[in-house]
């Protein structure tokens, strides 16, 4: 009797919890779409805000987000992959490995507001980049370094040692083995890392507020990097909190949710693709 009561109680608690989680997700997403979709239009997506006409368009924010993503990935990929290669292929000293891994864990635990602050002090003020997209992108590089490192490291570990030994046996040097055998084996880790990083950059706001600023002008890539600009999330914050433009905020939120959905699908797709490939 007591046992079946326990069983029933635990089962009920589990179902309630799963229910709460799913209902929360659906109502959150549903509410944002309900409020945001009416504001979406071609001109909303392809124009910049005009005070003369009193219209708001988010083209600059879309472009800024894109620029920050491209710039961050371009910088973080070599750094992260290189660090992972060092950890799995070169490092023989356990102490150094321990220190590097501890540092990576520490980095991934630091809140984004602190990144924003240090990014402002170091990139904007000390290095003289001022408030600009490149300062924001560099701040995000530090934030996402552990992610790229970890995913690459995990996929490097799955490259069989016999491949390396085979290549060494044929007389290849260490660098050649890494270039021809090891690096091609970590593509899946790099792709996964990129997807996670893009997701994090799209969602990031606190680290960008003080480093990249919140201007809404349209620039090319190079000009854009050196000038201040808001990404979609920062624009949402400014429109909602400072200007009270809730319709615009919800429309941006809708776009962000669609992007999050695509990124999650891509992550699932990539992991399934590589799992299948590996078992074949």
């Amino acid at each position: 009797m007591k046992r079946s009561l326990y069983k029933g109680a635990m089962k009920t608690l589990m179902y309630i919890s799963v229910g709460i989680t799913c209902i929360l997700a659906f109502s959150l997403i549903g509410y944002v779409l309900y409020r945001g979709i009416p504001g979406l239009s071609i001109s909303f997506l392809t124009q910049k805000p005009s005070y003369l006409k009193g219209t708001i368009g988010i083209l600059p924010d879309i472009l800024n987000t894109l620029y920050v993503i491209i710039a961050s990935l371009l910088i973080v990929l070599p750094l992260g992959v290189g660090a992972a290669v060092y950890l799995t292929e070169y490092a023989s000293n356990k102490k150094i490995v321990g220190i590097i891994e501890y540092a990576a864990e520490t980095l991934s635990g630091i809140p984004s507001i602190i990144y924003g602050l240090v990014g402002m002090l170091f990139f904007c003020q000390f290095l003289g980049f001022r408030t600009s997209l490149i300062a924001g992108a560099l701040t995000l590089v530090i934030m996402n370094l552990p992610t790229i490192m970890r995913t690459t490291e995990e996929s490097l570990k799955t490259v069989p040692n016999s491949y390396r030994e085979g290549a060494f046996g044929l007389g290849a040097g260490k660098w050649r083995v890494i270039r021809t055998v090891v690096l091609p084996g970590c593509v899946d880790g790099v792709v996964t890392g990129c997807i996670l990083t893009v997701g994090r950059i799209i969602g990031e706001s606190a680290a960008l507020l003080f480093t990249a600023g919140f201007a809404h002008s349209v620039h090319g890539f190079i000009d854009g990097l050196s000038s201040s600009g808001s990404t979609l999330t920062v624009a949402l914050y400014v429109y909602a909190k400072e200007q009270g433009e809730f319709q615009v905020a919800f429309s941006i939120a809708t776009i962000l949710l669609i992007l999050a959905f695509i990124i999650n699908l891509a992550a699932v797709g990539v992991s399934n693709y590589y799992r299948k490939k590996r078992t074949v």
Binding site: L24, I29, Y237, A253, I263
Partner: peptide, 14 residues
């Protein structure tokens, strides 16, 4: 994962 991917400003907005 969708919940994890929703940006914090969207949580703030709702």
């Amino acid at each position: 994962n969708m919940l994890a991917g929703i940006p914090s400003v969207v949580y703030g907005l709702v």
